Simulated scan of single mutants.
Amino acid sequence: MLREAFIEMYTEQDVLADFKEELEEQLPEDVELPDLPKKGSLDLEQVMESDFFFA
């Protein structure tokens, strides 16, 4: 169940972008955060095959 929830969480929303947006709302207007890094090529479905996913 953890693996499935992890895959769902990271495919249905952009967690890092959401986090950055929340930070920007809390910071003073003159503070600018750097752009997010480019997404890699990780296949989240591989989590289902990982022996040590939640170790």
Results as ranks from 00 to 15, higher is better:
Met1Asn: 04
Leu2Phe: 09
Leu2Glu: 01
Leu2His: 05
Arg3Cys: 07
Arg3Ser: 05
Arg3Asp: 00
Glu4Val: 14
Ala5Asn: 06
Ala5Leu: 04
Phe6Gln: 03
Phe6Ser: 04
Phe6Ile: 09
Ile7Thr: 04
Ile7Cys: 09
Ile7Trp: 04
Ile7Leu: 04
Ile7Gly: 08
Ile7His: 05
Glu8Thr: 07
Met9Phe: 07
Met9Ser: 04
Met9Cys: 01
Tyr10Asn: 10
Tyr10Leu: 11
Tyr10Cys: 06
Thr11Lys: 13
Thr11Met: 07
Thr11Val: 07
Thr11Gly: 02
Thr11Asn: 12
Thr11Ile: 04
Glu12Ile: 09
Glu12Gln: 11
Glu12Asp: 03
Glu12Leu: 09
Glu12Val: 12
Gln13Cys: 03
Gln13Lys: 11
Gln13Tyr: 04
Asp14Leu: 01
Asp14Gln: 06
Asp14Cys: 07
Asp14Thr: 00
Asp14His: 07
Val15Ser: 01
Leu16Ser: 06
Leu16Arg: 01
Leu16Glu: 08
Leu16Ile: 15
Ala17Ile: 06
Ala17Asn: 02
Ala17Glu: 05
Asp18Glu: 12
Asp18Met: 12
Asp18Phe: 10
Phe19Glu: 02
Phe19Arg: 14
Lys20Arg: 14
Lys20Leu: 12
Glu21Ser: 15
Glu22Leu: 10
Glu22Gly: 09
Glu22Trp: 08
Glu22His: 13
Leu23Asp: 03
Leu23Trp: 10
Leu23Phe: 13
Leu23Tyr: 08
Glu24Lys: 12
Glu24Trp: 08
Glu24Arg: 11
Glu25Arg: 15
Gln26Glu: 06
Gln26Arg: 15
Gln26Trp: 07
Leu27Glu: 05
Pro28Tyr: 07
Asp30Ile: 10
Asp30Glu: 13
Glu32Pro: 02
Glu32Asn: 05
Leu33Trp: 10
Leu33Lys: 11
Leu33Met: 12
Leu33Ser: 09
Pro34Cys: 12
Asp35Cys: 03
Asp35Glu: 15
Leu36Phe: 14
Pro37Ile: 05
Lys38Ile: 09
Lys38Trp: 09
Lys39Ala: 05
Gly40Thr: 15
Ser41Phe: 04
Ser41Val: 10
Ser41His: 07
Ser41Ile: 10
Leu42Met: 09
Leu42Ala: 06
Leu42Glu: 04
Asp43Gln: 05
Asp43Ile: 15
Leu44Pro: 01
Leu44Asn: 02
Leu44Asp: 01
Leu44Thr: 05
Glu45Gln: 12
Glu45Asp: 08
Glu45Ala: 09
Glu45Cys: 01
Glu45Ile: 05
Glu45Met: 10
Gln46Glu: 08
Gln46Val: 14
Val47Tyr: 00
Val47Asn: 00
Met48Phe: 02
Met48Thr: 03
Met48Arg: 14
Glu49Arg: 11
Glu49Cys: 00
Ser50Asp: 03
Ser50Pro: 00
Ser50Arg: 11
Ser50Gln: 06
Asp51Lys: 15
Phe52Ala: 03
Phe52Met: 00
Phe52Val: 08
Phe53Pro: 00
Phe53Gly: 00
Phe53Asp: 00
Phe54Asp: 03
Phe54Arg: 01
Phe54Gln: 01
Phe54Trp: 04
Phe54Val: 10
Ala55Trp: 02
